[in-house]
Design a protein around this nucleic acid. Sequence first.
DNA 1: TGTATTAATGACCCAGAAGTCATTAATAGT
DNA 2: ACTATTAATGACTTCTGGGTCATTAATACA
Lengths: 215, 215
Amino acid sequence: MDKKSQQPKNPADKKIRRRRKEARPGEIIEAGLQEFAERGFASARIEDVAARAGIAKGTVYRYFENKEALFEAAVRSRVIPIFDQLTIMIDTYPGTAEELLRILFKTIYQKLITPDVRILMRLIIAEGARFPQITEFYYQEAISKGQKILRKIVERGIENGEFRQGPVSAEPMVLVAPGIMAAIWKMTFDAHYPLDLNRFLEAHIDLVFNGLKQS
Amino acid sequence: MDKKSQQPKNPADKKIRRRRKEARPGEIIEAGLQEFAERGFASARIEDVAARAGIAKGTVYRYFENKEALFEAAVRSRVIPIFDQLTIMIDTYPGTAEELLRILFKTIYQKLITPDVRILMRLIIAEGARFPQITEFYYQEAISKGQKILRKIVERGIENGEFRQGPVSAEPMVLVAPGIMAAIWKMTFDAHYPLDLNRFLEAHIDLVFNGLKQS
DNA sequence: TGTATTAATGACCCAGAAGTCATTAATAGT
DNA sequence: ACTATTAATGACTTCTGGGTCATTAATACA
C-alpha cells in the first residue's frame, strides 16, 4: 500500500536495511494495532503488519514471540493515562460537583471517542472473550479507574447537597452510558447514519442535570 | 465435544444418515451462529458448524455457497421482531408517555440483553466493518425501528405536557443508552465484575425521570 | 580498515481450514 | 421389490498464513 515514501533518499531505495533495535517495538506495535483494528485478531496478517512497519516478516518475530504476544502488547500499550490525570484533578478542583461532572463528560467525548480509543473498545468487545487477561487488564487499568472517579464526584455532590442519593448514585455508571453508546455508534452505524457528537453531548448533559420531565 | 447423544437408538448408532432437506438450513444457521459468536467469523470452522449441526462438512455447502453466505444468513435470521410488536402497542396504548417509556426500558432489559441478542451485537461490532450490507440490514431492521418508537413516545410526552422539549427530545437515543451499555458490559466485563441488571434498570429509570439533581 | 557482533531478511516449511466432488445410500414413485 | 433421484458424505485438493532459520549486511569497536 503506502510505499514508505517518507524520505525518498535515492531513486532506487529498495533495500537499504537499517538497524534500529530501539525504535522497532513501538513501530511494530503501532502497525499491529492498525491491522488488528481493521481485520480483527484472526484475520490480521503478520506480513501486513511488517509491511506497514516497513520491515520484513521475520523481524516481527525478533521482537515478539508470536501473534498473540504482539496483540497483547498492542492493546496494553494504548491504555490511556486520561483517568490518572483526572483522578488528581478531582481532589484539587475547587468548583462544584456539577462542574466536575460536566468536565468529565466533555473529556469522554473529546478523548474517549477518538478513533484510537474506539479501536481498543472494538478489540475488547470482539476478542475479549478469547483473551481474558487482556479484558482483566483493561478493566483494572481503565474501567475501574473511571468508576472510581465517577463515584468520587457523585459522593461529593451528595455531601454538599447538589445531588440526590438514590438508585442513580448507587449505580453511577448510568451517568456515562450515553458516552459509551456514542462510541459504539461511531464504530458501527456512523458511516451510514452519522451522529452529531456535540448535539449528543448536549443531550447527555441535559438528561443528567435536568431529566426528561417537565418541571 | 458433545457426541450427539440425543437418541441413543442402538449401541452402534454411528452413521445412519437421514435426509432432511427442510430442517437442515435452520439447523446449520443455528449452529453457525453459535460458532461465529464464540470464535468470530474468521476463526469459526465450518467443520465445527457441521459437527454442531450433526452433519458432515460437505452438507453445509449443499445449503450455503460459502462461509460468508452462512454468516449473512445467520445474522439476518436473528433480527428480532420485538420492535414490530412494540410499534403496534404504542399506537393503541391508552396510558401516559412515561408508562410507555418504562415499558420500553423494561423490554430492553428483558429482551435485548439476552444472550441471543448480545451475540448479534457482538458480531455487528466485531465484524460489521467487513460486512457493510449486514450492518445496513441490521440498522434498517432493528435500530431504525427502535429509534422511531422512541421518537413517537417522546413526541407524545411533549404533546401532552409530560416531557420537556429540549436537547434530550432532539436526541432521544440518550434515553436508551444505559440499556446498550448494560448489554456491552454483559459481553465484556460481566464474568469478572457482574452487573446487577435489576439495580441498573432502576438507576436508568431513576435518571431518566428524576435526573441526578436534588430537587 | 578489518573483524566480530547481531539486527534484519525472506525463502521455506507445514498445519490447518475452506471448498470440491466422486461415491454412497436414503427415500419416493411405480 | 426395483429403480431413479438426490441428500449426504468425507477423503482430497488447494491455498493461506504463522512461524523458522540459514544467510546477509549494518554497525561497533579495535
